[in-house]
């Protein structure tokens, strides 16, 4: 069939809000864009485990410890669901993982910042998960069926993540002066990187238009970022800590908060690999993967042996 006709049919299908499924015809660029986006999303979940896992062994109470452990584990699960969604498009997880390990694949820049205090774990839950949820709620309606279903499951599971982070922040802000200072310091360090999570501004985001046309994305980076700021301001107020942005103020006319300019030089540098923890994060993933190789090989060898035995017996 003529590719033009196929493309037209595809776009009509998408415009009618019908999902695209794995075996349906799709433009190669749609497939590749999805593989890239879904695998980056999966990498972000898996790399995102590391800064938080840092504090599992140091969690200050057993209740906090199990909550954090369960949360970080969920991220492994979410990475897994997402890799699975990418695999429906013909990618192989092992190849995607190799790309992460050799530094050629990207993941969310936020995880290249260090977790220095316990309050950082609260701030990550509150801000980073808060930002992620805004993006993920939108992606529940993405046009690719397996991605959409993975996001629905992820959103359901993540509903406790932001709450646990915010509760942690509340406890700190109602605690000793040292604890409150710890919370403020965490907000100071995580606020701007959280805003950067939504990516470049719309005018610097050339791929966005196509993603919107194909309904992979449903809202622009700047719209999502604005949602996040609007959500966060009253939450910070309840905590009694200050968002580190002197330009932050309510704009009656727009019905939104105005906010200051993001340091895009920092953003692009962290993306390029120059963030405070890029090297450690990739190194940690690589080490885990390489240390696990003999384990994975052993299981395959055992399965092969068993299959051969069954064959011989038959």
């Amino acid at each position: 069939m003529d590719i033009g006709i196929l493309e037209k049919g595809f776009q009509q299908h998408v415009d009618a809000e019908k999902k695209i499924e794995a075996k349906d015809w799709m433009p190669e660029k749609y497939r590749n864009t999805l593989i890239r986006q879904i695998s980056q999303h999966a990498h972000s979940e898996v790399v995102g485990m590391l800064p938080e896992a840092n504090w599992i062994t140091r969690a200050p109470s057993l209740r906090r410890k199990v909550a954090l452990l369960a949360k970080v584990q969920d991220e492994a699960g979410h990475g897994l669901y997402l890799y699975s969604a990418a695999e429906t498009l013909g990618a192989e997880r092992a190849d995607l993982v190799e790309a992460l390990n050799d530094g050629s694949a990207k993941y969310s820049s936020i995880f290249n910042y260090p977790t220095l205090t316990w309050a950082d774990i609260g701030a990550i839950g509150w801000l980073v998960d808060g930002a992620a949820i805004i993006n993920q709620v939108m992606l529940q309606r993405t046009s690719y069926g397996p991605y959409s279903r993975a996001m629905i499951r992820i959103c359901k599971e993540e509903s406790f993540h932001q709450r646990q982070g915010y509760e942690m922040m509340l406890t700190l802000c109602n605690g000793s002066p040292e604890q409150k200072a710890m919370a403020q310091d965490a907000l100071n360090r995580w606020w701007w990187p959280s805003l950067m999570m939504f990516g470049p501004t719309d005018k610097d985001s050339p791929n966005s238009a196509l993603s919107m046309k194909w309904k992979i994305k449903r809202k622009s980076n700047d719209e999502l970022r604005q949602d996040f700021v609007d959500n966060s301001v009253p939450q910070a107020k309840i905590l009694g800590i200050t968002i580190p942005d002197p330009d932050l103020k309510w704009n009656e006319e727009r019905g939104h908060y105005d906010f200051g300019t993001i340091d895009w030089e920092e953003f692009y540098n962290v993306i390029k690999g120059n963030g405070p923890c890029n090297r450690q994060r990739v190194e940690a993933r690589k080490t885990a993967w390489e240390k696990g190789r003999w384990v994975r090989d052993a299981a395959v060898a055992y399965a092969d042996k068993k299959k051969n035995k069954e064959k011989d017996a038959a």
Partner: peptide, 18 residues
């Protein structure tokens, strides 16, 4: 959904855990 496992027995375990 799906997952990776070396054989059926481990796939059941992994499915239970995931």
């Amino acid at each position: 959904g799906s997952l990776h496992a070396p054989d059926a027995e481990m796939a059941i375990n992994n499915a239970r855990d995931v």
